[in-house]
Amino acid sequence: MGILGWIVLGLIAGAIAKAIMPGKDPGGIIVTILIGIVGAILGGFIGRALFNSDINSFFDLSTWLLAILGSLVLLGIYRLVTGRRAHA
């Protein structure tokens, strides 16, 4: 799966991550979508490094789980960083 596939997967994974972690995001929907894309790509790289397998299928369950997990982690970190700045 190429970078375009990871971007499309990231858009969907970002929306799923937003549904799993509801709440107000400081950047709005555009930032959440971008975080989903970066999180999906990050999840793919981490999955490839940890499991030493080629994660290339768009329809594979492990690909989706890694993309959603990467998006959730990145969204959580983003909320922690921007939440502290907003209250400071």
Results as ranks from 00 to 15, higher is better:
65 L>S: 07
11 L>C: 14
8 V>T: 13
23 G>K: 10
19 A>Q: 10
42 L>A: 15
85 R>T: 07
50 L>I: 10
85 R>E: 13
59 F>S: 09
28 G>M: 03
30 I>K: 11
58 F>Q: 04
25 D>P: 08
42 L>H: 06
46 I>W: 00
66 L>S: 12
8 V>K: 14
45 F>N: 11
19 A>D: 15
80 L>E: 12
1 M>Q: 05
55 I>Q: 09
27 G>A: 12
19 A>M: 15
32 T>C: 04
28 G>S: 05
30 I>E: 09
80 L>W: 11
30 I>G: 04
47 G>A: 06
25 D>Y: 15
86 A>Y: 09
18 K>V: 10
61 L>Q: 06
67 A>I: 05
88 A>R: 11
69 L>K: 03
10 G>Y: 10
11 L>I: 14
33 I>G: 04
85 R>I: 01
83 G>V: 10
64 W>C: 04
67 A>H: 11
49 A>E: 13
40 A>E: 09
57 S>T: 02
61 L>N: 04
66 L>N: 14
6 W>R: 00
3 I>S: 00
50 L>F: 14
87 H>L: 02
5 G>H: 09
27 G>W: 00
29 I>K: 14
4 L>I: 08
36 G>W: 02
24 K>T: 12
66 L>C: 06
44 G>F: 04
78 Y>F: 14
30 I>R: 14
26 P>I: 05
6 W>P: 07
50 L>T: 14
81 V>S: 06
74 L>E: 14
60 D>V: 09
61 L>W: 10
4 L>D: 02
74 L>G: 11
18 K>M: 08
67 A>W: 02
29 I>Y: 14
75 L>C: 02
46 I>S: 05
1 M>L: 07
62 S>P: 02
17 A>M: 04
62 S>H: 13
28 G>Y: 13
8 V>D: 03
35 I>A: 13
63 T>A: 15
53 S>K: 08
82 T>E: 02
80 L>N: 06
38 V>F: 13
7 I>T: 10
25 D>K: 12
